[in-house]
């Protein structure tokens, strides 16, 4: 059973098409990246998955069920634009928002203690939200997102405004969710985070699919014809290398069409060169995106 299946959804607003015929699916136990620049249509897509807005056409199913009140209880959503009731205490906020996900008060309190403890926030349990720092508020929002043990968790720009310590804390918790068989959708414009965390991705731009599939396969497809080399000594002429570009701490060797990186490595080893690093140059998601977005437009 798929956690979410989106087929051919379209959504237009007064003057523009925000989402144009998107289809994708996410399986349980998978961390899925929804990526694209600001304004690409990520949040609109998520809002349709959450049944906050309706698509003009197309369909979304969550665990094979149509969207409705019952499916909302199985979803956890951390929106990009977030806030809490400033005058309420941490625990009151958690209890109210979790009760709207169908949890009873007693189980909320137990689970809240556990999660607050895990995130080092237990001491702030009875503080008012307005007394918390921005980063602490974001942790509370993340707790609200996952406290009802959702089967599908959607995180929209979860790292925005977080310091490195809290970013690492959240990354660890996301991995924990995936390991417990939850489907996690991570939507962001920070493509380096996706490279680090996600198994599969959907890259969109102007509401349309740019790339969709397994991350390592996609990257392999875009692997360029060059290697990165860090060495000691004199490099000299290398057969099959058409150009050398110096980089920071490495030299990029551009290969001709016929030579493979393995042949280059064998040649360098046979010459006895001291090699510190030898890496097949793989473009970053960012570079792939720029390339694809440029090509499509």
């Amino acid at each position: 059973m798929l956690a979410v299946e989106v087929s051919h959804i379209v959504k237009s607003f007064a003057d523009k098409v925000a989402v144009d015929d998107l289809s994708f699916s996410v399986a349980p136990g998978e961390m899925f990246g929804l990526i694209g620049p600001n304004g690409a249509g990520k949040t609109t897509t998520i809002r349709m998955m959450m049944d906050i807005i309706k698509p003009d056409s197309g369909e979304v199913t969550i665990f094979d069920a149509k969207l409705g009140e019952a499916t909302k209880n199985r979803l956890g959503y951390l929106p990009e634009e977030r806030g809490l009731y400033k005058k309420l205490s941490v625990i009151e906020s958690i209890i109210y928002l979790a009760s709207l996900k169908g949890m009873d008060r007693k189980s909320v309190e137990e689970k809240a203690d556990e999660l607050l403890n895990q995130t080092g926030m237990l001491a702030s349990k009875n503080k008012k939200i307005e007394e918390l720092s921005k980063g602490m508020g974001q942790i509370i929002q993340f707790i609200v997102t996952i406290i009802h043990d959702p089967q599908l968790v959607i995180l929209d720009e979860p790292f925005a405004g977080l310091d490195p310590v809290n970013t690492e804390l959240l990354k660890g918790m996301f991995a924990g969710l995936r390991n417990r068989g939850k489907a996690v959708i991570l939507s962001t414009h920070q493509m380096n985070q996706v490279e680090e965390l996600c198994d599969r991705i959907l890259m969109i731009d102007n509401g349309r699919t740019v790339l969709y599939g397994n991350l390592s396969e996609i990257k392999a497809r875009y692997r360029g014809n060059s290697v990165l080399l860090d060495f000691k000594g004199e490099l000299g002429e290398v057969p099959g290398v058409t150009a050398k570009r110096p980089g920071k701490g490495y030299t990029e060797l551009i290969l001709d069409g016929q030579t493979t990186p393995q042949q280059v490595l064998a040649h360098l080893v046979s010459r006895g060169l001291a090699i510190n690093r030898f890496e097949v140059a793989t473009p970053s998601l960012n570079e792939i995106f720029l390339k694809e977005a440029g090509r499509k437009s």
Partner: peptide
């Protein structure tokens, strides 16, 4: 921005 959290429930 609580609206979106509420409307997801």
């Amino acid at each position: 921005r609580l609206m979106e959290i509420l409307l997801s429930s």
